[in-house]
Design a protein around this nucleic acid. Sequence first.
RNA 1: GCUGGGGUGGCGGAACUGGCAUACGCGCACGUUUGAGGGGCGUGUCCUUAAUCGGAUGCGGGUUCAAAUCCCGCCCUCAGCACCA
Length: 812
Amino acid sequence: MTEYNHLEVEKKWQEKWSESKIFESKEDSKKEKYYCLEMLPYPSGDLHMGHVRNYSIGDVYARFHRMKGKNVLYTVGWDAFGLPAENAAIKNKIHPAKWIKQNIACMRKQLKALGFSYDWNREITTCDPKYYKWTQWFFIKMWEKGLVFRKNANVNWCPVCQTVLANEQVSNSVCWRCDSHIEHKVLEQWFIKITDYADELLEGHKHLGEWSQQVLSMQKNWIGKSYGVEIDFKIPGSDKNLKIFTTRPDTIFGVTFMVVAPEHEIINELKSKIKNYKQVSQYIIASGRKSNIERVSNKKKTGIKIEGINALNLATKKEIPIFTADYVLTEYGTGAIMAVPAHDQRDWEFAKKFDIPVIEVIKGNNFDVSKHAYEDEGILVNSGEFSGIKSVDAFDVVSNWIEKQGFGKKTVIFKLKDWLVSRQRYWGAPIPMIYCDRCGIVPVSEKELPVLLPEDVEFTEAGKFHLKTNKTFINVKCPKCCKAAIRETDTIDTFVDSSWYYLRYCDSHNDNAPFVSVKADYWMPVDQYIGGIEHACMHLIYARFWFKVMRDLGFIKYDEPFTNLLTQGMVTIGGSAMSKSRGNIVNPDEILIKYGADTTRLFILFAAPIQKQFDWSFDGVEGCWRLINRVWCLFDVVNTKSIAVASHKDKNDILRAMHKTVKKVTFDIEKECQFNTAISSIMELVNELYLYKYHANDDGVSLEVYKTLILLLAPITPHLCEEIWEKLGNNEYISFHTWPVFDENMVKDSSIEIPIQINGKLKGKITISADASEIEVNKAVNSDEKISNYLKDKQIVKFTYVKNKIVTIVVK
RNA sequence: GCUGGGGUGGCGGAACUGGCAUACGCGCACGUUUGAGGGGCGUGUCCUUAAUCGGAUGCGGGUUCAAAUCCCGCCCUCAGCACCA
């Protein structure tokens, strides 16, 4: 047999698969469905190793389940709106649409060269009007349902470029393009009321038992449900109250100061009373330049005392100072806190810096609050009538008392914020809303959808697109009164596009609806979703939310979109993420050309466990290439019956090894998502077969094992396996051949080797029958020469046989 | 800072529910095949030792007959933090 020519073989099968359209799927109620989904890629230019990792996993699942006899939906699309296309447009003087189109063509070619078994007939692109028509349609549905609203929000504003900046476009409070200091500007924005679903998003975790604890706890924290108390602190000399939220009402007697966020309205409301207003407003401007992460992560707390006003703690009846400090965020709670330096480290640091008293109200064992805040449980002290009770009980006792006294009430708050979906950018789906002087805000009528994004726009060096000055776009008739009105020029956040694409895959070509329920009901929910861990919170919460809204609108009947989730680790290089901005992207083409798609796929699955980060290196690619060639060369070996050389391997040994491998590979793919160990066990079987290869008169055993081996490898290295399968005389595609089964009897060993530990140290091994009793084992141990030597002159304190695992003996 | 991961040979990693640490692969060394090179095939490869003994899973403690795995306290590192997707 000639040397394996990956270029020829891979091209041959890719063409065959494409021409025969075997991977195009249709609804078939008689067949069990399997929906395998990968996170929608952004067409950034070239495929990178993170994509290859993601889709190699997906393709293994898709192919594995096809072989298991399921009707598989597996396709791909493009998350094509968004910032990088605009940046490229400005940099290279190319229209975003054109840039995106080029990138998609390039990446599509690469995906095909990797042999992924996509149903290309269902491919979608989010910037295609046929797609975003329905994104806009959903937006209107949500508006009608009262889930869309407008309110003011802070944006990063570059005063020189006169444009809104994304967080990514700001580093160290400076605009990335012109280096000028950014400002925070308040603009009216569109929001979606995701907080209406906060509780359900949290409760829904109960039905996501197959998701990793890691993702669930990240989401839980992101949603951030906390039980606490809203408490009013009076401001003497004014009619204002300072409302705060705390999860620690038990510490109310330890409050020695208050902190409000720099954006807090009270500062403006009591402006006339504030003696150092000038300094305070300077501080507010300075903190406005920092990002939230900068504000919160700095260990050295900053802030300023607001002179002229105080707060009255109704628990202690004492007046305490009010500060403003940027470690308190306006978005969370009420934007103001009661500070308890003795029991919160952030407050403690602030108190030390500003020389504020620290009053201990929770007593811990041997703990000195003058050195550090005590944040654990304890007994209340210095707390009036509540002194002496346990802090765990105090939450209820104190908050009930506060409610009774009438200066606060128990409440639940979430960290989850309403979803800001408007973008002051060009390259996105236009928000389908119209401002009419008479009728107010009116949605575009359904028959006018999609609101097409005009293509004839200029973009300037400053990173600005002239959608607002495009008269044919903005001047419109009000759908209600037919008088002149103005169109919204903001576009929709791309996270909206990617919140429902998996439903469009179910019915990609429908021009009358986003999808029909019959099809969605058949394919949904997604059986296996695969993507990066970095999406654990935002995308995966938005998509779950969107799905629940659609359920409530009556479009689908399920509660959760993704049954199983596999979060792959990042592919890094030198320990840091590959990204266009870092310029450290490894293009898969190099190994694709040299070694082929099968080796590339095999390598990326074998190199590291899939959930873990994989630091890129070419070391090891050779080993995968070698395996493919060893498998290829075995074809001749199993067909050469004439060579009769004594083999030290028995027929039954190799059959047993085969059954064990089938069991291991099936389990690793289906249950454990452990592709690296599945592959290593296939490698072991190949090694076994090489040791066995020259066995005379093997009654076709080597051929049987070889066929099984090819079937096991088929989802991972499909081109090689199709080729060998054909050479073995099969006319059907291996891609649809039945997955091998194993015989449980052949997996069990009759005799096993058991280690023997004496006083916790390994001292020897014995071979016993698998069903031996403890008495028989004891006998075998005593008759072992080496062990009995150890046991001589010693008293046996304890003898334990853990069945099929270990013998331990404790001696004196 | 908060939240969530991770740390095992020269390297990527394996180890079921607490039960033989280092499977599989890379690299390296030696042998063999070959005119040579490449490639293939085979053997060896945690440290220490002639061998036994002994020691080793980021660091320090603890629980247990038995700990990479469980508990307590540290260190290092990666990811996310709401306008990148």
